Each structure stands twice: as C-alpha cells, then as structure tokens.
Amino acid sequence: MRSAAVVGTGLIGTSIALALRGRGVTTYLIDTDPEAARTAAELGAGIAERPRQPVELAVIAVPPQYVAAALREHQLADLAEDFTDAASVKELPQREAARTGCDLTRFVGGHPMGGREQSGPLAARDDLFHGRPWVLTPSPESRAQTLARAEELAGLCGARPVVMCQAEHDRAVALTSHAPHVVSSLLAGRLLHGEPSQLGLAGQGLADVTRLAGGSAELWTDILGSNAPAVADVLAEFTRDLHQVVDALRGLGSAREPEQRRAHADRLSTALVRGIQGRARIPARGTSTTAAPGLGPALATAPRGV
C-alpha cells in the first residue's frame, strides 16, 4: 500500500496513521476538528489535508454512530478507492451504511482490538495494535480487493487479521470489552461513596479493576448504545451471578449452623473458582485466535501484509 487516508484523528485513528507512516505509506489526516488533525500531523502521523487524488484505502476512525455518515460523505467526495472503519461495533454501522446508500462493494468493516483508557491524538502509539487481532467483517457485497486492502492495513499495523461476521463480532466484544467497561465504571462509581480514610488504603488491585473507567463517557455511551442488546445480555447474566454471590455472603453473615455456613461458603468458593478458570481462558498476547465449537462463521487468521 502506497497511500491512505485516516478520517478521525483520535487515539485509534492517529495510532493507525503513525503505524502506516512508519511503514512508508503516504497518509492523509482528516478531522472535523482541524486542531486534532494538526496535532496528529505534528506527531508524525501524516499530512493534515485532503489528497489531490483518491488514495488506495481510507480508514473511517470515528465513533459508531458517525461511521455511515462519514463513509457516505467521503465516498461521494471520491477520497479513496476502498474504505474500512475502526469502530468497535459492526452491525449498526453496516445497516446504516446500507440504508443511506453507501457503496458497500468498496467497504469492509474493521475493528483493531487495541486501545487505551486515554483518548485523543496525544495518547496515540505506533505499536498500539502489535500482536493484536484486527477483526474484519466483510458483507456479501464487499469486493475481494477491498478485503485484501483491509487485511494489508492490519498487517502494516502489526496486527493479525481475523475475519468474522458482524453479529458474531458484536457478541464477542460485548463479552470481552463492552460489559467489562460497564462493570469497571460501576465499581469506580462506588468510590464516590467512600470516605477519604477508606480510599487511602486503595492498592494496585483497585487501580487495575477500575482502569477502564477512565475512558471517555461520551465515546462509551455511543459504543454501548450501538451494541445495546448484546451488552445487556452479558450484564443480565453477570447480574444473576452477582446476586448469587450476594446471597452467599448474606448467608455467611447470618448462618449459625456449621452446615449452613459450609453451604454458603461452597457457593462463594465456586464463584471464585469460576473466575480463576475464566481468566485462564484469556489468550496470551500475540497468540492466534481459534474458533470454538458452535461459534459459527470462520475466525480465519490471514497474515497478509505482515
């Protein structure tokens, strides 16, 4: 790839642009906030202006609710031959793109699975996606060239392209990203009720668990709202588990008989063991993604362009 454009110079867009520039790709930076684009350019992410002729690939790096509108605008303006995006929700932007008349043959949805709790171009890193999955969700209309260029983009950024369907992606990120953000935020919100003497005892464990809560509330409201049904399903199941733990703790606090205490302790221990087992299933950074039985369409890694 010799030329690209990045629309949206926040954390993700600027990180993509930095990676592309590091691989010698001429990269143009476009943002509704000219100052953000200039800041990204000063960091070495590219040229803060529109190209004079279409680039090979444009990356729409804006929040989910704006993807379809930005895609249509820049397709009509002939910004690029092919387009992808970087939003963390895939079904809703795809439906909106179809509804608004975007050229879906030249578009492949994308989601680089990397990020930080900070936002904005100054938080960007050229290695943000190294060794991480980069999900691509081509539609039946997507042409082969567009998918190939999206795969090449992922490889240039040091990521591993992973092809999956839009609905499967949204269910996956609801479990692995979106619901954890809500849980982290709710726990952090409880700290508003803590006394200074209590908060003075906080250690690294609390900082680790609440780290995600530092993300932009505006951005995360958009992300969660765009994937609301899938996130609600995960949180509903989490709520049932939480109620069981609360019941066990209440029982431990009130039980008088040893057998009753053992029963409640067993329920609590079971929840903790399940946590250990679940955490052990998180793949180590840089390992390949493999499909689990019954998950549906391919989770095929395609290391093209690495």
Rank of each mutant, 00 (worst) to 15 (best):
N227E: 07
N227A: 09
P229C: 14
P229S: 12
A230C: 13
A230E: 15
V231I: 13
V231R: 12
A232M: 12
V234E: 10
V234S: 07
L235C: 09
A236L: 14
E237K: 14
E237V: 07
F238A: 11
F238M: 09
T239D: 13
D241Q: 13
L242C: 10
L242E: 03
H243K: 13
Q244F: 00
Q244W: 00
V245D: 03
V245P: 10
V245H: 04
V246L: 11
V246Y: 00
D247S: 11
A248T: 04
A248V: 01
G251F: 01
L252M: 11
L252E: 05
L252H: 05
G253T: 00
G253R: 04
G253V: 02
S254H: 04
S254D: 02
A255D: 06
A255H: 04
A255C: 05
R256W: 00
R256S: 10
R256L: 07
P258T: 06
P258W: 06
Q260H: 10
Q260D: 15
Q260T: 10
Q260R: 12
Q260Y: 00
R261M: 12
R261I: 09
R261G: 07
R261Y: 00
R262T: 05
R262M: 10
R262H: 10
A263I: 01
D266Q: 14
R267M: 01
R267C: 03
R267D: 02
L268H: 02
L268Y: 01
S269A: 14
S269Q: 08
S269F: 13
